[in-house]
Design a binder for these strands. Structure first.
Lengths: 182, 182
DNA sequence: CGCAATTTGTTGATTACTCAACAAATCAAT
DNA sequence: ATTGATTTGTTGAGTAATCAACAAATTGCG
């Protein structure tokens, strides 16, 4: 993993930050490349050096966040549901502007399905979910059921302005999961 | 005044911001060029493209702030002392990190004299100060007296953590000046 | 619809920045 | 004072970003 040129890193950070900010102000479709360039304090052409268009840019941003969440999962594999959830919620909090706009009513529905998919995959990676009281149930049903639950809780949290501390959200959703996996 | 290249502007802003931040953390002499480069997220060589050394850098920063204050004076020439002072104090507040470290005990004494000089000059530009009750007094004495007074008030304000709102400082020093110039 | 205005995506020439490497200067500490 | 380590200031080759200009596509409005 050779270091990327400092200029590249700075440009990308600035551009992504600009998009996140602008999405909090107007619908993604109403954002022009020029808007992004202005906000990022970067030449319009620079954006095309890194992304083919604004959809590619948003995709890459989504992919990056999903990947970060996945990595957090790896490093948190030995934790309880509560601890692991907290790591995620901390990440949500640090990037609240992105997540709250992505999960807001008008947010990209693509992101939601991408997110749900991640949660399900990570449940699978966690080990067998057909344990204890879950015997006799279909694995995919369990995965989709609790995956949606986790995503839904996060959605509710953001749509309502994060009314509870991250710690509490992590503890409570953690407890709800524990209760259902033996 | 043709626009400067965006990259130049960004580098200079980042470098100056870095210096200001670092000065709040350690003595200017203890700050290395590498420190500045790291903080500014800029290659060390880039600093030398804009400044000959860190003293030149600090000088230019000081000169810039003095110049900004002078320009604020021009555009505030039709204001009362109170209004004009407020414009200055607002500027101080926006750049409190710079001013408070520059005026702190260990701050560059050069800046203080540069600042005093500016105040005196601007008093002169304001018109004749030997008016009213000041008849019979030496002009230079008046200028140095009230110049020091203004600078001293600002110094006190910063050294004590800006205990009063900018508005109040502006009003009170303004009133004190009004009282003494007829 | 049809036109004007905006936005897009691309181009090429130029410039600023990066990075690694260097010798010289300065610092620190025995 | 001598050594060793850090910091300085400079170099050159390579790369990314800038800017202006362009045609093509898209938008929006009367």
């Amino acid at each position: 993993m050779s270091k990327v040129d400092r200029r590249i890193a700075k440009s990308r950070v600035a551009i992504k930050k600009a998009v996140t900010e602008l999405m909090a102000e107007k619908s993604f479709d109403d954002i022009t490349i020029q808007d992004i360039a202005d906000r990022a304090d970067v030449n319009r052409g620079t954006i095309y050096l890194h992304y083919t268009d604004k959809y590619d840019l948003l995709d890459k941003m989504i992919e990056e966040h999903i990947e970060s969440l996945r990595e957090l999962c790896q490093s948190a594999s030995e934790m309880t549901f509560q601890e692991g959830n907290y790591v995620w919620y901390e990440y949500f909090e640090r990037n609240y502007l992105f997540f709250s706009t992505m999960l807001a009513s008008k947010g990209a529905p693509y992101f939601r399905s991408r997110f749900l998919n991640l949660v399900v995959e990570e449940f699978k990676a966690e080990g067998d979910v057909v344990v204890g009281q879950n015997h006799g149930l279909n694995e995919e049903v369990i995965l989709q059921f609790f995956g949606s639950a986790v995503v839904g809780a996060v959605e509710w949290w953001f749509k309502n302005g994060m009314p509870l501390p991250a710690r509490v959200m992590a503890e409570q959703t953690g407890a709800l999961l524990d209760r259902n996996f033996e």
